[in-house]
Design a protein around this nucleic acid. Structure first.
Lengths: 184, 184
DNA sequence: CGAGTATTGTACCGTTTGGTACAGTCGGGT
DNA sequence: ACCCGACTGTACCAAACGGTACAATACTCG
């Protein structure tokens, strides 16, 4: 009982990496099986719903990580600036300074968005909303805070695309620096 | 002879839309055939290299459109501000105010990047470089111009992701408005 | 008209896809 | 020792995959 949960988390991390690198269509069960060392028997034991359930579970897992490490620091902290700084650090570390791509952002682009539209919208929506709330507490007008928050989350997503296109993590670091300056 | 060139352009536009909506892996020959009304015989007649050649041709076609309508206005225009405004208008119209996704940006994210890395890097590289050059001519220091250009192209890509995630074209329009303000 | 090329439809290839079935193995609890 | 549920490997399935072969048709031009 005690070992099941950690194992599943490890499993989700590995499966997530396959989806991240190959996209929803490109992540075949063969690839997932090779990456996890699990046969179809095990895979379908853990995810009876097949590939779609795997992707949904991965999204939920990522969502949970962001909820805890990125969104939570933005809320209810005495110092909103400190919370914003913590969210930027968590973002930098999650995306490995741009070496990693945003799975949920990638899913938003192709047709797999239709399958997970609700989760994708909720993920980005909470990111923007919590950042805007922190910015409001730090003194910005609600309208200005909304605008800044949307701009910042967009800049992060765009920087991930450019960093990957240029194969250059400095692009992502510069974007985070600019965000720091704009939000600070 | 005269009809071949326009037909091929139409064909590339249709095939491009299939890649744009389904991604490289998701765009099956069956889908491409259905969208174009062409059987495999015709498809392989026009693109003997198969799917990979189709995608390469689509990328080249898009690249050519941007070269002519987005990058060219940035160059050698007497008024750099007018050139920047024309590039933003062309961008807005190409992406249909955010309803459309950036094929090349989407390819940059998943594994298909490896196949087309050179073309992807060149496309974004020229976009940033030409914009930076226009900004330099409009009075910015080269360093500041580079930074602003990278930020703007990144903001456009990020806004496309967010617009698609939220299913809301207003996100993209706001990003272009901010770009206008920052570059103007 | 006829020759020759451009284009197309169809049947087919081997491989891989996501998914199922199920017999077996393993380990903890009684 | 036994049992029962969690787990796993293997064989299998129909469908779809990208790609090939080729005969038949359409088109152009002399």
């Amino acid at each position: 009982m005690r070992r099941i949960a950690p194992d599943r988390v490890d499993l989700l991390a590995i499966v997530g990496e396959v989806f991240r690198e190959h996209g929803y269509e490109g992540a075949s069960l063969a690839l997932i099986g090779a990456a996890t060392g699990l046969g179809k028997g095990s895979l379908y034991h853990f995810f009876p719903g097949g590939k779609e359930e795997m992707a949904a579970a991965v999204i939920a897992h990522i969502d949970g990580w962001f909820e805890e490490n990125v969104f939570l620091p933005l809320q209810n902290t005495a110092d909103p600036h400190a919370g914003i700084e913590r969210m930027l650090e968590a973002t930098d570390s999650y995306f490995r300074s741009g070496r990693r791509v945003c799975l949920i952002g990638a899913f938003a682009l192709d047709e797999s968005r239709d399958l997970f539209a609700k989760a994708i919208k909720s993920y980005f929506g909470r990111w923007v909303a919590h950042l805007a709330e922190a910015l409001t507490r730090s003194g910005h007008s609600p309208a200005k805070a909304d605008e800044l928050a949307e701009e910042t989350v967009g800049a992060i997503q765009g920087a991930l695309t450019l960093a990957r296109a240029f194969d250059d993590t400095a692009v992502f670091s510069r974007a985070l620096q600019r965000a720091r300056a704009a939000l600070g």
